[in-house]
Each structure stands twice: as structure tokens, then as C-alpha cells.
Design a protein around this nucleic acid. Structure first.
Lengths: 283, 283
DNA sequence: GTTCCGCATGAATCGATAG
DNA sequence: ACTATCGATTCATGCGGAA
């Protein structure tokens, strides 16, 4: 099946209205934070942030499939020495719209933005709010399993060595049954804290988040050929990753600059559309 | 100057009323979470949690010095498949009492509670909410500087118990060679994400948090001879650490069992009251 | 004296079963 | 229907005994 990437230029609040109900499997987005990116988005003031976002989240609620998930990457900024409360208020208001606030993941940014202030340390984490329409949603946990901690390596090393010898001599093909069991045992489920570095490599446009971030959630909440939506696509990281992972995707941005940039990007990535190397745990 | 540790048996809401205004430098506490510790504390339901806490935070506001800090360790539980919202509501309500919500630190618990569920990963982080009465508060950032690199962070958090004892017994003069090497290394300021393991069951009584947690905030927000308060002292970790670090402290608990246990503990630790080994960056 | 391994145990959460 | 209790799940950590 062919993978599609649909890009739209316009205000999400309006563009979203043309999509049918219950048609998207995952929404992953990082909206412009209050007063951030002022040059580009015009900056939404902290006081008006909730009011600005609610019409959009209302549309997202309509469009998302009942077993789909909405992941919102956001962090409140400091206003007049205090953490602003618009994220807290947003969660409470979105629940009134019908959203379930299922979980809050933490993105621990290993290399956070440098700086020093007399009354504050560097902010090195962001929220990844998980919302759902229903308590029954798709979650493919095996797709994001991670290697076990260091302690296991030491403790298992001795045992696995003897098993390896035994199986190699028996089968001669490398991996015996026992060892494949061991390999499975070496992976564990992750927690709700994600460690990822911010990407600082891009030449022109710095993305709000590294590719590994949407990649993780796309693995976790979708399977190939599903539909992923980013209503504030910016430099299009979500869409690029979705495409690489054989997911259809929709991207919306209000800025022509971003829209055209992503169009160009996607034209290039089309060539690796059927890359068989894509790692994926979902069937 | 002599260091005092005052312990009180009773309901914080009432006991706090007898303390004078503006008399405490740091409040560090981890109140019983909603519906947790039912056997011991009776359990406060999520619906009534804010209502239960506000009279206490009102007293805390009165007692705290204008340049003092209140650090609240808390995490909302899952109720009916959703994260409960009482912590969000608590923050909003406390701001109405006059509190400034200055910052939110993350405690990343390396060893979180195990378990597997179809729709959720293990919860491995907790909130450390920083509240202040004024935008000008005492913060001794140099006291918590860490050697450069991740490895140091891990080592230092682990250092608290095992290594320290070992080195103390070896050298008798405080820190062994290895540790003094770390101290000579280049130091950087930490971020607002703390990596610490929960203390696994110590022989008799398990604490809700490791000693390194209050230790970090006591270093950061107080200097020697200051006053630290824990209105829900439990096993008294905050008071024990404060004492070790030459801070006066006040501990309150409603359970006689805890009250007597901490009394006994403190009587013992009094002997190391003037321990010169205590690491401290504040003068 | 080290290093290594066995074991118990947590601020948990879900789903089923029972009143 | 709605609440209360119980078993199953799972992994990092420290302690204690053994090699």
C-alpha cells in the first residue's frame, strides 16, 4: 500500500474542520509555546493561550479515532519569576471537552539550553501529555522495549557464556534456543521518563524536538499504514519520521515558509519510502 | 551554636498554629499521597485532597520567612485509568493563597515500582514543586554544583550511603581519595531534573524518599543554623539529614509510632551532631 | 578482602470477583 | 450500579552469605 503525506497551508483551527470524524490514529504535536517563536507565530500571550488552544483541541477530539491517542509536547514558560499555569489550566479545560488525561510522560533533555540565572537552574525537561477519547486505546508496548540496565549484563554474563558454548557446539549456527530466550529476556519495558538529546545539528531550521521523540510515540501508538497528524508541523519532523516508518501523515502549518520547506523535504524522502531497513516491532 | 531538632506529635493543621510568623527557612515535605498509606494515615481521597491540604499550606505560608522556600514532593495517582488532577488544582489554589509557583523539579526515580499493564508504563518520576512567598529568595547554587558529566551525577547520588560510610571508616577524616578527586574536577550547575534511586527497604523502616533528596534541597535553599520544617515527617528523613548538615529542624507527625521512632533516631544521631565530615558548600 | 549471586521488596495499577 | 478487596504483573536495589 502506498504511504501518503498530505500537507496543508493554513490555520489549524480552520483547516481541521475539513477532516472527517474518527479518521486519525495519532496526533503528535508541539504547538508554539506562549510568547515563544514570536517572530514567526506572532506569539500567543500566556493569558490567552488556553482560549487560543481550545477550539483546536475540540477539532482534534472530533478527528481522532476512538482508539487513537493525542500526544501534546508542551512546557510552560517562566513569567515574572513564576512558572505560568496555562498548561495546568489547559489540561483541566480539555477534560471538560471530553479528553481523558491518561498519562504525563517526561522528556528529559540531556543537553538542555545553556544559561545561568540567580534564582533558577536550566530547564531540562518538557511535558508529553497523553490524551485519549476512550480508556481502550491502541498501545503497542513491545515496539519500544529497551535493553535492560547495566546490572543485568554483569549478572547474566557468566550464565550466558556457558549456554552459548553449549548451543554453539550443538547447533553450529550461532544461536541456540536458550540464547534466543536470553535475548528476549534482555529487553524490558520502558518507563514514562524519556531520555533524549535535543538535536542541534540541523543547518538551517532547528526543530522543536529530535526525530527520536515522535518516532517513539509513533512506534508505541500506531502500526504501519496508520494516520499520524501534526497540526503545528513546523519543520515537519513528525511527518518525515512518520513517512520513514510507513505511516500516512497529515501536516498543517500557518506559515508558507514552513509549508514549502516541508514539501521540498518530503519530495526527497519519497525515494526512501519503501526502505526495508525501517525498524518496526508492529505487524 | 547548638543545633536543635524539635519534634511534635499531632495534626499539622493544628500544631503549625503555635509557630511564629516568618520563622522557617525551608519547608521540605512529602505529604501522604491520596489514598496511599491507608493503613497508617487513613488515606485522603483524591476528591478531598485539595480541601484537606489548603489549611495546612495556609499555615506554612504564614510561618515561612519571606526569603524562604517550600518544596513539596508529590505525585498524582491513577484513578479510573486517568491521572488525577488534584495536584494541578492544588497549585492553582495555593497561588490564590499568595504562593508563587516558582519552579517544578523532576525527581527521576531510577528504580520505580514494577508491574505491567496493557495501557500504561511504570511511573518513574515525581514532582518537586517549589513555592515561594517572594521573588527574592535565598538560593545557594554553588552548594549543589556537580562534576561535569553524567557519570558523576550517578556516582554522587549513590555516594550518599555506601561510599560515604566506607570512606569515613577507611580514612577517618572524611572523604577518600577518589571522592576528593571528584571534588577537584570541573563543576557545573545542575538542572531541574534529579536522578536518585528510592532507598530500598532498610532494615526496619522504609522512607518515602532517599536522604539525598532533602539533602539536595537543604544545601540549595539553606545555610548552617537555618531552620528546616517537615510537617509530615514520617520516618524523619528530612530531620535526620538537616541535623547531619547542621540545620535546626522541626518535625511533625500525627502518628505516635513515627513520632517515637524519630525521637529515638535523633537521640542517636545527636552524637554525630558536630561531625566535621558534613559536606557543605555554604559558609 | 574482594566479587558474585540469591533473595526480598517497594508512594503501583489493572481486572476480576465479591458484597 | 458502585465500592472494596485480592491476585498477577515486573525490575532496580541493597543486604547477606558464599566462592
Amino acid at each position: 500500500m502506498e504511504i501518503k503525506t498530505d500537507l496543508y497551508l493554513g490555520d489549524s483551527k480552520e483547516v481541521l474542520k475539513q477532516f472527517p470524524d474518527n479518521s486519525v490514529d495519532l496526533i503528535f504535536t508541539s504547538p508554539p509555546y506562549a510568547d515563544q517563536r514570536k517572530k514567526t507565530y506572532g506569539g500567543i500571550s500566556p493569558e490567552k493561550y488556553v482560549e487560543w488552544f481550545l477550539p483546536i483541541s475540540e477539532q482534534l477530539f472530533r478527528i481522532l479515532k476512538p482508539d487513537g491517542t493525542f500526544v501534546l509536547n508542551i512546557k510552560e514558560k517562566v513569567v515574572n519569576g513564576e512558572r505560568s499555569t496555562y498548561v495546568l489550566e489547559l489540561i483541566l479545560e480539555m477534560r471538560k471537552q471530553g479528553w481523558l488525561w491518561t498519562e504525563e510522560f517526561i522528556w528529559h533533555k540531556k543537553n538542555s539550553y545553556p544559561g545561568k540565572w540567580p534564582n533558577r537552574f536550566r530547564d531540562s525537561w518538557e511535558r508529553l501529555l497523553q490524551f485519549n477519547k476512550s480508556r481502550k486505546f491502541n498501545m503497542y508496548q513491545e515496539a519500544v522495549m529497551v535493553p535492560r540496565g547495566d546490572w543485568a549484563q554483569k549478572r547474566l554474563s557468566k550464565l550466558s557464556e556457558t549456554d552459548r558454548k553449549r548451543d554453539e557446539s550443538k547447533v553450529g549456527s550461532g544461536f541456540g534456543k536458550n540464547i534466543s530466550n536470553w535475548l528476549n529476556r534482555e529487553k524490558v519495558y520502558p518507563t514514562n521518563v524519556l531520555h533524549m538529546a535535543t538535536e542541534c545539528n540541523n543547518k538551517n531550521h532547528s526543530a522543536a524536538f529530535p526525530e527520536s521523540l515522535p518516532e517513539w510515540f509513533i512506534k508505541l501508538f500506531t502500526k504501519p499504514n496508520d494516520v499520524v497528524l501534526d497540526p503545528f508541523m513546523g519543520s515537519g519532523t513528525t511527518n518525515v519520521v512518520a513517512n520513514k516508518m510507513h505511516r500516512n501523515s497529515i501536516g498543517i502549518d500557518i506559515l508558507p515558509e514552513y509549508y514549502h520547506m516541508v514539501r521540498q523535504k518530503m519530495a526527497v524522502t519519497d525515494y526512501v519510502l519503501f526502505d526495508p531497513l525501517v525498524e518496526d516491532g508492529n505487524a
